[in-house]
């Protein structure tokens, strides 16, 4: 187990973590402020990836695709918020789960009608398609490195937005005490739409950046939603800071578990048992992490006050 391998796996964990953070940020705000369980959040991730892939192929430019994906997804999200989601805020969680599950089916079928059932192609831009030699003998995919940097930059920007601006103040207030915010005369409907669209744009960014690494296909947002829910539960619902810390924790646990557990078990067990046991435990690792955090802090790491 060389130092280089540990470094590379740590970068992999960070990259997966920032991706989770971009998706989780919107979801945790929507759940924390509007008290809405939005299962269709993953569908917005899919919309972002599809728009980016489509525009990239048409214009031959990944950056244009990325630039188109964010506003397009925010627009789709605003329409969905106005037409469907708005009616769900006052309903109980079961109704919300049912309705947003319906939205998943709607988005999957609509995507198929527009772009067909076959997965789409999305390549990284040429200047990020190779590898970067971080240290001698440790090539690392340039695109993944870019994802880490963009993710960290967006996290910083979001942190400033939430702590330093009027909108951020309203968002924090909304997460802590919704009734008080509306009682103070804030246009809560507009705030909700803005937060929903902002969350969608962040998710679209994650989807567009995931496209060149993963596959742009129907249903791609559903599998990613499970670790994202784990992230927001660990971080504390409604907390951006919590989502960031939890996303990195989950990302690192996810990658380190798969990378190192089989080897660790191999020290005491025979290889085939170690491999099977290692991959089984690493599949459970993020849930074990979540259970441990919840025993220690039942409301997550950084619950908003209120």
């Amino acid at each position: 187990m060389s130092f280089l391998l540990i470094l590379e796996q740590t970068l992999n964990g960070l990259q997966f973590g920032v991706m989770l953070f971009l998706i989780a940020a919107g979801l945790t705000l929507v759940l924390g402020i509007m008290n809405l369980v939005n299962l269709a959040h993953g569908s917005l991730y899919m919309v972002g990836a599809f728009v980016c892939a489509w525009v990239s192929v048409e214009t031959d430019s990944f950056l244009l695709g990325l630039a188109a994906a964010l506003p397009a997804t925010a627009l789709v999200a605003s329409v969905v918020e106005l037409l469907v989601v708005r009616r769900l805020y006052s309903r109980d969680h079961l109704d919300q789960v049912l309705a947003t599950f319906g939205l998943i089916l709607f988005f999957n079928e609509a995507t198929k009608m527009i772009w067909g059932a076959r997965p789409l192609r999305l390549d990284p831009p040429d200047f990020l398609s190779g590898t970067v030699e971080l240290l001698p003998g440790a090539p690392y995919p340039a695109f993944r490195l870019a994802v880490i940097l963009v993710g960290l930059a967006v996290a910083l920007g979001l942190f400033l937005l939430v702590t330093r601006t009027r909108l951020g103040m309203l968002i924090r207030a909304g997460a802590s005490n919704r009734e008080m915010v509306s009682a103070l005369g804030v246009d809560i409907d507009r705030l909700y739409t803005v937060v929903f669209a902002l969350g969608a744009a962040l998710t679209a960014l994650a989807g567009a950046m995931a496209g060149p690494i993963y596959s742009v296909e129907i249903g791609m947002g559903e599998s990613v939603l499970i670790p994202v829910f784990v992230v927001i539960v660990i971080g504390g619902i409604g907390s951006i800071r919590g989502a960031f810390v939890a996303a990195l924790l989950v990302g690192l646990t996810f990658v380190w578990g798969r990378a190192f557990l089989p080897g660790l078990f191999g020290l005491v067990l025979e290889p085939s048992t170690a491999s099977t046991l290692g991959s089984a435990i690493s599949a459970m690792a993020i849930y074990i992490l979540m259970a441990a955090v919840l025993i220690w802090r039942p409301r997550g790491l950084f619950p908003p006050h209120g």
């Binding site: 599998s223 990658v255 798969r258 099977t276």
Partner: peptide, 21 residues
């Protein structure tokens, strides 16, 4: 190396690093 990944897994960074090793 004989590696079983999770069904539906999309990120193979960990496996690829181990593979190169």
């Amino acid at each position: 190396g004989e590696v079983y990944t999770q069904l539906g897994q999309t990120d193979y960074a960990a496996e690829l690093a181990a593979l190169r090793d």
